[in-house]
Amino acid sequence: MYKNLIEILKRKGISKKAYAEFLGLSEKTVWNKLQGKTEFTLGEAQKTCKLICPEYKMDYVFAAKQTAA
């Protein structure tokens, strides 16, 4: 789960739907990526960091938190 990214999007008022449109993906795909079920591509990560949250380092934004199974 990408808790830092989820929190950044929330603080900036960017919905999951808007983020999905920004990346050119479906909401379901973005939900799966945010939950850590599928991975973000390097391009998606770079676009996110460059245009949405340039004040943060990519390592922070995309730090994955492991959830208990």
Rank of each mutant, 00 (worst) to 15 (best):
M1H: 13
S15H: 00
I8S: 08
Y19H: 13
E39F: 01
F40V: 13
K50C: 03
L51D: 13
K50R: 14
D59R: 03
G43H: 02
R11L: 10
L51K: 13
A20C: 11
A20R: 07
F40Y: 15
E44I: 12
G36E: 04
S26L: 02
K57M: 00
L23G: 04
G24Q: 01
F40K: 06
K10C: 04
V61S: 00
Q35H: 15
E27R: 15
C49V: 12
E39P: 01
K17A: 07
A69V: 05
Y19P: 03
A69M: 07
V61E: 01
T41R: 09
W31E: 14
L25T: 11
F62A: 09
V61P: 01
A68K: 14
L25E: 12
I8C: 11
Q66T: 06
I14H: 01
F62E: 13
A63V: 02
K37N: 13
E39V: 06
Q35A: 15
A45I: 07
N4G: 04
L5K: 03
N4Q: 08
K3G: 01
K28Q: 15
K10S: 08
Q66K: 11
G43T: 04
A69Q: 11
A20K: 10
A68N: 14
Y60D: 13
T48G: 13
L42C: 01
K17W: 05
G36P: 05
G13D: 00
I8K: 09
C53P: 05
A20L: 14
I14S: 03
S15A: 05
A63L: 09
C49P: 06
K17R: 11
